[in-house]
Write a protein that binds this DNA or RNA. Structure first.
Lengths: 219, 219
DNA sequence: AAAGCTTTAGTTGTGCACAACCTTTATGCG
DNA sequence: CGCATAAAGGTTGTGCACAACTAAAGCTTT
């Protein structure tokens, strides 16, 4: 017996796997995903896999067209900018709506992120940066007890993550790592002060900077 | 040929129909929805219907349990309160993130809502109030061009709509209508001033009041 | 050679039969 | 009578075969 039902666990696993591949640009926008091929890879039939693709479609990451295929979406820059606007506001709300009490354990996690971030400098890789950024984002949303805020923030994060990654690959990787490290240091400082609102404000500020940077990279 | 593909149109139709039934308490929390019965009612097989139920499950309105059934959820009061907190903030953001220009047509729509609201006084019905409130909510989100904000607000609205309705049925209906009318009047005033931020603030304020009222009804 | 039609390969959508599972009811034993 | 066990009915989950559909390649005709 598993904690969750077998089917639900597999659903979550496949969903997370495909979402990660899309957001890490393993499947760049325009890629055609074959239900049959994916089903074979994951050792199931099309039926459970279609449930996963349906959710990805609801989340705006793919779009299924009858007779054509299931295609990874590419997002309108204007809509992306507006989504970032909302993400920025939500990041600030994490500090105001049911913030958690900052424990020693949380501070230690913040310190761990910084350590791992600094390790990126010795061996700079875009994918490693993206993965750590993704993990750090989840850490950030875990600082509120407001489930709706968490879910919404994550939903929007995964919708915009690809754009950030695409823009990053056009920028100087080492510089991007340095910027990320700066955020981690500011964040750690806020956590050490046991100030959840300050931590949220750090995230908010860096999303603002990220918006400006991506806009500048586009022209 | 239809504008959308046939399948997608039907999906949206079924989804909207079931979501409305759940939020209007036609299917109160705990109700067991039979896939086969619903499929028969809508003239399809289980397959397309399961796609609809899967989305409703992702939205938190039902939960499917293998061997048991698909059951309409009932929500934890604490989580509901936190969801309302977020909804309040999002309502305020509608005025700040890409607000639309208030046109004469929009003002006319606001006036129309007021007229229809006043009509409720002569024949008070909970369902009619709930339906108008739902329609008015969509009108409110249409005042921003930010798609993500619109989608998120609606998603959260449908997640909390039932709770409001359940609480309302324990309160004085005529008084609830009067409160709703006051919101419509305040809103109309803001629209006539062509002030989108003011309109958003009106909504924000009334969500705050709604939270207090629901809390008072429970305690 | 070019344009239009037909064919063909490949994809997602649908319906059905069955498997897996849970709950309730019936039954047999102490 | 009480309790445990089994059996039955009903529900969601899965796999498969086929339908509906699209796009591209190939063929025919001008």
């Amino acid at each position: 017996m598993s904690d969750q039902s077998d089917a639900r666990a597999r659903f979550l696993r496949l969903h997370d796997a495909l979402r990660t591949r899309i957001c890490l640009l393993d499947y760049p926008p325009g890629t055609r995903l074959s239900e049959e091929t994916l089903a074979a890879e994951f050792g199931t039939s099309r039926t459970p896999l279609r449930r996963v693709l349906a959710r990805l479609e609801d989340e705006g990451l793919v779009i299924s067209q009858h007779g054509v295929g299931t295609i990874v979406t590419d997002v309108d820059p204007g809509e992306m900018a507006r989504t970032y606007d909302l993400r920025r506001e939500l990041a600030g709300l994490v500090g105001r709506l049911s913030p958690v009490a900052i424990t020693d354990e949380i501070v230690a996690m913040g310190h761990d992120f910084l350590t791992r971030g600094e390790a990126l400098l010795t061996n700079p890789e875009v994918r490693a940066l993206a993965r750590l950024n993704m993990e750090y984002f989840h850490f950030g949303t875990s600082l509120t007890m407001n489930e709706a805020l968490r879910d919404t923030s994550e939903r929007l994060y995964y919708r915009t993550a690809r754009i950030w990654l695409k823009a990053t690959s056009h920028l100087d990787l080492t510089e991007e790592i340095a910027i990320f490290l700066a955020e981690l240091r500011d964040s750690l400082q806020a956590l050490q002060a046991r100030d959840a609102q300050a931590a949220a404000d750090v995230r908010r500020a860096h999303i603002s900077l990220c918006i400006a940077r991506v806009n500048a990279a586009r022209g």
